[in-house]
Structures are given as C-alpha cells and as structure tokens.
Nucleic acid binder design. Structure first.
Lengths: 340, 340
DNA sequence: TTGAAAGCGTTACCAA
DNA sequence: TTGGTAACGCTTTCAA
C-alpha cells in the first residue's frame, strides 16, 4: 500500500506539503503541487479514507439505508440518491435494512462508527428516540418519518395529495365502485397524528371521495400484508370471487397495483375495460406492463435533491435550526390501466 | 462521541483491557469483561470503524459494486449479496457503477482506501490490469470477468449452458423460426476467447440449434443497445413490421424479453400463441407479468454464496492459490410465455 | 512557501 | 490477567 509518506518522499517534500498539494491548497507553489500530483499518479496513490475520516471527521461518503434492495421502489430511490451524491462529488453507499429492527440498529451504528459523514434513512421499526441515541450526533435525514415531534430533518412522499389525485382520477373517468387496497378503515380511527404511509394514503383517498360527494363505506378499504404483488394477486381473486361490484381500484403501491391487475387477469377481468387500476410510486416496471400502469409518480430526483440538500447543510454545520420537513414533488401519470 | 477511552475509564480498566474485553478475548477475566460490556452499553459505545480499519486493516464491511441500482437483476443480486454478508456477520455496502469507467475507477479506489475489507465487483469498462493497479492488493472477486488470463477469483452466470437450455426449450415446444435478441453474429467471429456475456449467450444458443439440427442463419441474431425494455419494445415492432416469420424468441435478459412481449402486444401479436418468448436472469418482475415469463433463472443465492466464499477465503488469507473460477447454478423456469 | 509534530480512536505487542 | 505504549495514515496547527 502506497501512503502519503511515499508520495511526499517521491516528490521530495514533507507529508504536510503533499497533503496540501493534493487537495489543491492555494498556499503550495504551483510547480511543487504539480510535482506532488505527478508522483501520486505515478505511484497509484489513493488516500486512505479511514485515516482521513479519523483525523478530519469527514470522508465524502453518504450512507443510504433502504428497506429492500430487490424491490423496485426502494432500489430506484437508492439509485436516485447515488446520482445526487455523485453530483456533489460524494459517494453513496446503499445498505438494506430488510425491514428488521436488528438490522436497522446495526446500520445506524455504522454511521456513528464514522463509516459515512451522514445518512439518509427510511425508518421502519425504530423510533426517533432510538435513532437519536444510536446516531451519536451524526447528521441524518429521515424519509417519511412518522414521529409526532421530529428530531431529524425529513422528506416525505406526497401521500395525502397524491392519493387524493389518484382517487379523484378514478372518479373523473367514471368509476362508481371504488376499492382502496393497502389499509383498513379501522386503522384510521386510533391513529390521529402519527400517520404512517398507509394511513396517509387512506386519508388522501377519503378526501377525494368526500370532495366528489361519493358515498364512503369502510368496506372500500382492504388491508394487505405484506405489500407485495403475490399477496395483491390473491386479494384480486378474492375481490372477484366475492361478486361485489367494482369498477376502479387504487393500489397503495405500484407493486400492489400490478399484482391486482395480474389477479384480475387470472379471473378474466379486463383492465381497464372492466376495472380501472391506478398505483402509487411510479416504478419503471409499470411502463412496460400490459396494460401499462397509471400511477402517482413520486419524483425521485426531487426527493433525492431535497434529502441530500438537507443532509449536506447539516454536515457542513450551516444549520442548527429546528428539524425541517419537505415533501417531494409528484405527478399523476395516466397510462393504459385507467384509459377508457 | 464516546470512545473506548471513555468506556475503559467508566469500567475502571485500561484501554487495552477494554478493547480485549469487548471483542471477547479469552484472556480477560469474566467479571472484568462483564463490567466493560455494561459500561459500553450504558454509554451507547460503538466502535469507530475508521480507527479499527486504520489499525487492524479490517472493519467487517464488504463492498458490492453493481451496474445500476434501479434495474431488477443487479439490484436483486445486491440484495442476495447483502443477505449472504449478513449470514457471515458482515455488512455489505452497495454502490452503483452506472456502467461508466470513471465511476468504476472511483469505486475501486474506495477499496484501496480501506472503506471495506474486500469487494465483489462487476467489471464493465475496466480491465483486469486496471483493476489490479487500483485494488492495491485488496481482495476482490469479479462477476463474469471476461479477462483471458484472470488475476482475480471470479463467479460466472451459466451463460452458455443456460442459453442452450433456453433455445432448446423453444425448439422442444415446436418453434421453427427462432430469433435471438441481444447480440450480432458478427461479434462471434472476432472474439474467440475474451467472451463477454452477450457472446457466451450466443454461443449457447448456437449449440442448441446445432444439437437439434436446426438451420443457422446470421439473421437470427439481432443486436440491441442498450439492453433495456424500451429498446426491446421498438425491436419487437421492427420484427413484426418486417413481416419475417417468427414463432420463438430468446431475449438475452428478462428485461429484454419483457420489452419484446410488450412490443408484440402493441402490434397485436399474442404471446405465447403466436410467438413464444423466453428470457434470462429470473427477475421477480417476470412472475407477475401478463403473460408470466419463462426464463433461465440464475440462482442468486448460490451466486452470492460462491462469491462471498471466495472473497472471505482471500480476506482471511487462507489462500494464495491461482485465481478460481466458479459458475452459479441456474434453472429453466417454464411459465406462460412459452406454454402451449 | 514549507516542515515538524501532535493527535484522531483503535489494536497489538510486550512487560508487569 | 492486566496495563503501558507504539503504531496505523492522515490533517492541521504552529514555527520557521
């Protein structure tokens, strides 16, 4: 391994000079700096990030923790974060929490442990207080934080407005018998404030129904666990087999919506002719599907920009303000699954 | 930030003793060790990985570099690697190379830079020599390395055998006019040895055709760049519009195959009734698609197990052997897209 | 404009 | 069984 000492030696300067030269400090004479750079290149020198981090507390690495790497939405989000980090000359490292508390804790420790300068984190099973204790004061931005009084900056998906737009769209194209898949009406009652994604998507749906003067019936809300396409597929079978009238469905994620369409197809129900289906997220899988999926697309580039912006501000110490909450842009994307 | 010194102080022992105690060294008296552990827990101590890495050269982190985080196959692979790392008590960090040389180099530098103990790397635009120069002697396992004389251990997808199985399956179900999408026949000629994924998938396809005594025509092989579903969709349009007879298609990746099916649907061509379609990879998206996609599924758990096994052997210094090459298991999965 | 030297938090050697 | 101490490679202050 070639170290800074080697480079300094090869260039005939001290370690300090080499360090300054390589980071472009103005105090070093141009020709000295050039000599050092040449030596570094010749020796294939790369800075030891552990040493740098240990000494200066910074290493240019941003941690991104998402639920599952093998699901489209979180992984597209991780990709957006990586791109955004690169735009700032930083390197993102992505870790999956597997939606387990143990794993979330282990990842949070890594932040404390100086693996990265800060972290963007999707909390699942761990609350703000636990995060604070584990973060050791390192900057952190949360995604869709459900804490009632926040400790960290957070960026939200536009669950309420987006779901409202989704259900409004179903009503606008003439749906009379709408189903919302992903949560139950009962959950709405006991949870006034600490509203998770599922609750907020129900709230938005309700707003659209009320606004349009549609009848509201608790039976319109169907729970689903886990939120995956196979479960949704089975759910669609049950909907059809129950014989209840349905002409529009809002799946709380695209993955759910695609599973529903697949389940309807299994029973000979056509989308959009018999039932219109709309999802939420905007994963790229929906574009290629047959029929292509209408959805509320979260602008992941905007989400990444906002999250990274907040994080970098904290990292640079420019801000000691109270926690900030931002919401990512979204857009209604109308495709074949609701076109009629 | 609470350090080992704080813990040692709180437990009334020296730093050295605290260090040994926390890592369960047998030399420390049980009650001393317990006292140290209690203190560490009470103070929310977490080891500084940078310091550990700097001193001992190890920090329990494994790097995984994949092309794109937002494509199903690489991200499912990243997930498999993360699970496998966790099974060994290690933490995987995933980085995307965005298939750019600059980015691959920047990531390789991170290995050298002690961010992780070793790396699993999908080389795209960087050759073995460059990797060796940049890796600074750190252990590395490559995926589908195309180098003629390898420097590193490598794990391969079963491109040749898998593609052979795919095309054989098309022939078995009665296809007479087969197309292979993802590479051109001309590429086969100049590239005898350093065979990339595309070339190897063509070679396997050819073997099946020969074995079954089917006529071979260079026009059967259609290039595609980039390998994504939108491009494949357009390709399907062109196939249909050309009017050539086709009753079976092998898409070199599932993403290609799904795009082809979508493109056929755009032109009213039914899969599998008019054209049977099979892909390669086994991404979960194919299960839910309409029709569900037949494919050669790479066993990603097996791939991860083999790659991690090789890497850990090198990290532990158990092996100074010549580079090892292993191949991941695969399986033919027959679904609706070739069922008739 | 450059160099010497002091640490950052940890581990590992050696001595007690 | 424990403690002192010297590194690991880098950055940064202070002097020259």
């Amino acid at each position: 391994m070639v170290t800074m000492t080697d480079v300094a030696h090869a260039a005939g300067v001290s370690r300090a000079t080499a360090s300054y030269a390589l980071r472009g400090d103005a105090r070093i004479a141009p020709d000295t700096a050039e000599r050092v750079r040449q030596a570094a290149q010749r020796l294939h020198y790369t800075a030891n990030l552990s040493a740098r981090s240990l000494r200066s507390g910074r290493n240019g690495v941003i941690g991104v923790a998402i639920f599952e790497l093998d699901r489209p939405y979180p992984s597209e989000m991780g990709a957006a974060m990586s791109r955004e980090a690169a735009r700032h000359g930083l390197q993102a490292i992505v870790q999956q929490t597997s939606n387990s508390k143990e794993s979330e804790i282990s990842i949070l420790r890594k932040v404390t442990s100086q693996l990265c300068d800060g972290m963007i984190f999707s909390p699942g099973n761990v609350n703000d207080e636990e995060i604070r204790a584990l973060s050791g004061g390192k900057p952190m931005v949360l995604l869709d934080d459900i804490s009632p009084d926040p400790v960290f900056d957070s960026v939200y998906t536009a669950c309420i407005e987006g779901s409202e737009a989704a259900v409004r769209h179903l009503i606008d194209i003439g749906c009379k018998h709408i189903l919302i898949v992903g949560g139950t009406y009962e959950d709405l009652a006991d949870d006034g404030k600490s509203a998770g994604v599922s609750i907020r998507r129900m709230l938005g749906s309700l707003q659209a129904l009320e606004e349009k003067g549609m009848p509201i019936d608790p039976g319109m809300f169907l729970p689903l666990a886990p939120w995956d396409s196979e479960t949704a597929r089975v759910c669609a079978h049950r909907i059809v087999d129950s014989g209840r009238p349905v002409d529009g469905v809002f799946g709380m994620t695209d993955t759910i919506a695609l599973g529903l369409i697949r389940g309807f197809a299994d029973r000979g129900i056509r989308v959009p002719e018999d039932v219109a289906v709309i999802g939420f997220d905007g994963i790229s899988e929906g574009e290629c599907f047959i029929p292509s999926l209408s959805t509320i697309r979260t602008d992941l580039d905007d989400l990444a920009r906002k999250a990274m912006g907040l994080l970098l501000k904290r990292i640079d110490g420019d801000s000691d303000d109270a926690p900030v909450r931002l919401t990512a842009d979204y857009e209604l994307v109308v495709r074949e699954s609701t076109r009629r």
